[in-house]
Structure formats: structure tokens, C-alpha cells
């Protein structure tokens, strides 16, 4: 038995390296083809049009109105679903009462329901012959084909995001820090602001980011309830869709002016979103 030492080139560790490398390569390749390639594709298409198409498209009054409308809907949705989302999260994470698990099932429901169905739901509720239609029309309040229904459907779709991000954080946190704060003389409100909110802030922010992204990008539900009236109920995504429809030549796909505009708008939005929507 010689005591000569050598650095072993382990077959085991070589195999491990091969396995790791292989799996990593598969993961990167999949994400590359599926996610990164289309991003590059749109960047290429957007840049090809040049800067003038961007400014031309974005200065059209319809386009400006569409973006403003999207902004309004998003702002209302984010505020309501963040505040009330935190309340629901507190109840789901901390409270115990019969029906609580049913409650969390309902929270997840919007994730499973097609936005298109959400739109149909709103039509069934507020449209002609709908449950609430007589009450609102008697008071002259327009719900369908107007801002209220667009906000409502967007809110419905965005409900889960804040709640699902905040609940696990609250559960992991426990109540010991809050109990400590209250023994030190903090009121419930002070405890919430200075201990609870501080601890959930990253989860909450991520939830808000997801809500914002989804609210801006929502199309299926809004398409059905809005009527897509140019200059009135047309959001940014609806504008993009109309631009596509107008220049839609199946199989040809000529790069008409409107189409390039769409690419520009879409490209910019994508750029916005990738910067702003990610934690």
C-alpha cells in the first residue's frame, strides 16, 4: 500500500459535473427558446421601425386616451386590491372560523377562471335582463360599456395576487413580534404600521407588482364589458388588438403603418413592464 498522494480525478465527481451541467443546460435552453427568444424578437421588430414610428404612434389622441384609461383602471385596482387584500390576508392567516378554508378557495378562484368568463359574468349581471341591470338603469348609472364594469372585472381578476403573496409571509412570521410590540405599549394601529406592515412589505410589494402588471395587461374581460369604443372605452391593450384586427391579413401579415405602430407600442410596453413589473 503506497502512501503516495495524488489528487483524485473522481469518476463520481466527474459524473456529478456532467449531470449538473446537462440539467443546467436543459433549463437554460428551455427558458431561452420559450421566453428570451420572443423578447429578442420584439426588440428587433420594434427597433426596425425606427424612432419616428414610435413618436408618431404614441402622439395619436386615441393612443394617448387608451394609455390614460389603462392608467386609471390600474391605479384604482392596485389601491383597492392592496388595502383590502392585506385585510383578507390577515384574516386568512390569523383568524380561525368555520368556512375559512372555503374563503381561501374563493380567493384562488379568479386564477382558475378565464378572464373571458369574468367578462361574461359581468354581462350576465349588468347587461340587459341581468340581476342588477334594472336598479342601475333606473338611476341612470351606466355600468356596462363604461369605466365601472372595466374596473370591476379587472379587480376581480387581480384579487388573488396580493393575498397570495402576503399570507405565507404572515404565517411564517407568527405573532410574537406583534405581541412584543403590544407589551411595549404600542396600540393595535401602531403595531400594524410599525411591525406587521414592515415585515410583510416585500411580499406586499411583489403582490402589488403582479397586480399592476396584470391590470395593465388585462384584455379578455375588458374586451367583453367595454364594447371597445375608440376614444372612450378603449384601453391600451384593446388598442393594440384593434390595430392588429384592422391590418389582419391571414398569411400575409404586411407591415402596414398601423402594424408597425402596434409593434412599437407593444415593444415599449414590454420594455416598461420588464423593468417595472419585476421585483
Amino acid at each position: 500500500m503506497s502512501t503516495e498522494l495524488r489528487t483524485p480525478r473522481l469518476s463520481g465527481s466527474a459524473r456529478r459535473l456532467l449531470v449538473h451541467g446537462g440539467f443546467t443546460a436543459i433549463a437554460i435552453l428551455y427558458v431561452g427558446v420559450l421566453v428570451v427568444a420572443p423578447l429578442i424578437g420584439i426588440a428587433w421588430a420594434a427597433l426596425r421601425g425606427g424612432l419616428s414610428t414610435w413618436t408618431a404612434t404614441l402622439s395619436q389622441p386615441d393612443v394617448v386616451h387608451a394609455y390614460v384609461l389603462t392608467g386609471i383602471i390600474t391605479a384604482i385596482t392596485v389601491v383597492v386590491s392592496s388595502v383590502l387584500g392585506v385585510v383578507v390576508a390577515l384574516v386568512v392567516a390569523r383568524d380561525r372560523f368555520p368556512g375559512r378554508s372555503l374563503m381561501s378557495a374563493f380567493v384562488d378562484l379568479p386564477l382558475a377562471v378565464s378572464p373571458v368568463i369574468v367578462g361574461v359574468m359581468a354581462v350576465l349581471l349588468f347587461g340587459r335582463g341581468g340581476w342588477f341591470e334594472p336598479w342601475f338603469s333606473a338611476r341612470g348609472i351606466q355600468i356596462l360599456f363604461a369605466l365601472p364594469s372595466m374596473v370591476l372585472v379587472t379587480m376581480f381578476i387581480c384579487i388573488p395576487f396580493v393575498i397570495r403573496e402576503v399570507v405565507p409571509v404572515l404565517q411564517e412570521l407568527g405573532v410574537s413580534e406583534e405581541e412584543a410590540a403590544s407589551t411595549l405599549g404600542a396600540s393595535s394601529w401602531q403595531t400594524f404600521l410599525r411591525v406587521t406592515l414592515k415585515n410583510i412589505r416585500w411580499g406586499l410589494l411583489y403582490g402589488i407588482a403582479l397586480t399592476t402588471a396584470r391590470a395593465i395587461g388585462e384584455i379578455g374581460a375588458v374586451l367583453i364589458v367595454s364594447g371597445s369604443i375608440t376614444g372612450k372605452t378603449e384601453t391600451a391593450t384593446l388598442y393594440i388588438l384593434r390595430a392588429f384586427d384592422q391590418n389582419h391579413r391571414p398569411g400575409l401579415d404586411r407591415p402596414a403603418r398601423g402594424y408597425r405602430g402596434v409593434q412599437a407600442a407593444g415593444g415599449e410596453e414590454a420594455a416598461d413592464m420588464t423593468c417595472g413589473g419585476i421585483r
Partner: peptide
């Protein structure tokens, strides 16, 4: 890589369609 995995959450779904068309459409 982890950040890129989250991108589909951040992009409006319609833009996803636009992106795919930009990449795989006959003019690309």
C-alpha cells in the same frame, strides 16, 4: 435565469402574442 422565469408574469398577455408574432411571423 430566475428573473427571466418571472417575465411572463410581468408582460401583458397580448404583448406575448405580439412578441411571438414578431419572432415567428413571416416577415421575421
Amino acid at each position: 435565469l430566475s428573473t427571466i422565469v418571472d417575465i411572463p408574469f410581468a408582460i401583458p398577455t397580448l404583448v406575448t402574442g405580439v412578441m411571438l408574432r414578431a419572432l415567428y411571423g413571416p416577415i421575421s
